[in-house]
Amino acid sequence: MTDLKLELKEKIIEQLNLEDVSITEIGDNDPLFGEGLGLDSIDALELIVMLDKDYGIKLADPKEGKKIFESVETMATYITSKKAN
């Protein structure tokens, strides 16, 4: 799971063009939206596309995203649980 979290941090930085953010600056439990990384609604859509494209996971209900994209930790937990099913 540690590798997955590292991978997610790399993907978030690259795909969301977080120019001045490094992997070490993103804590596993840091909020991705609001006061954390400051991601916005377009970023949320990018994360939904990323889940589909890179992990083959389609969100049936976009409202689920609020909990899934809370932090890198919650994303990794969700991806791991989906892959186990």
């Binding site: 969301l16 063009n17 377009i42 970023d43 859509l45 990018e46 596309v49 589909d52 494209k53």
Partner: peptide, 8 residues
């Protein structure tokens, strides 16, 4: 996989 960030 259209990118929302590009589309806007």
């Amino acid at each position: 996989y259209p990118s929302p960030a590009v589309f806007v």
